[in-house]
Design a protein around this nucleic acid. Sequence first.
DNA 1: AAGGGATGCAACCGCGCGTCA
DNA 2: CTGACGCGCGGTTGCATCCCT
Length: 285
Amino acid sequence: MGRPPCCDKEGVKKGPWTPEEDIVLVSYIQEHGPGNWRAVPTNTGLLRCSKSCRLRWTNYLRPGIKRGNFTDQEERMIIHLQALLGNRWAAIASYLPQRTDNDIKNYWNTHLKKKLRKVHMRSNYGDTSKQGIARGQWEKRLQTDIRMARQALWEALTPQNSTTPNFSGCFSFSSQAQAQAQAQATAYASSTENIAKLLTGWMKTPPKAAAKTTPHGGGDQEIGSILKYECIENGNCEKYEGMEDGINCEGLPFSVIEKWLLEENGGVQTKDCGINDIGILDENI
DNA sequence: AAGGGATGCAACCGCGCGTCA
DNA sequence: CTGACGCGCGGTTGCATCCCT
């Protein structure tokens, strides 16, 4: 039953990628654009399966990926989105254009899960007489928020409501959040100097095909992808020209869900609605 | 300084979905 | 209609590094 694995051919290399392989892959994609992964190993001579090539590109070599520590905003956003969407990492990643789904998944599994469990234990065994009231109110509010968000999601995905802003995965943060995110963005680093150099050239002249093909697929993300190139070129990844706070990257007002998700990410306050208050995620921890 | 456990992350695997002949 | 194929996604694994004793 089931399809035979795509990578069980003899002579197919597995394990960590070497800088040389990276360069071959990047050069090929620079020339042909991402996509048609089946053809990549045969055309490049790489002893890797197509899947492996795609994964390496989308999770590591693709320009615009931010590596390094997650910001508080990103962290909270992941927590909110995980509560809302579950383990749909690709969907969550679409809200954090500079992060890959794999990165987010790893971060959740290694950091956030642990953190939330810890916080939850503390709240279970600590003095909850005061917290109980606050938690009850907060949970009520969150439930309402989730209902609204689901409604918004439903509306956004329903064809007749096509005027609703879609989930393009692109936000404009408040100035404080921007400053922080921008500072963090400088943490982007590639695995090797060579690749970084290669990508520098690549980013200066992104091929049309590359902008067309998205890392996660789907029409909405195409926009995010294109804007990513713009932001790389402009050197400003948080806010695009003509964008204002409260306006998404398409120049449309935020949908309910976007507003909700950003409400507490805007640097207004972080005390009450940080992860310390997340208590309904037990099934996911 | 050494070694053993814990941690983080890149990469692999299997499955589902969409497309096309 | 159906089966093959390509791609994307989520879960899992394995290895390198870190940290503690």
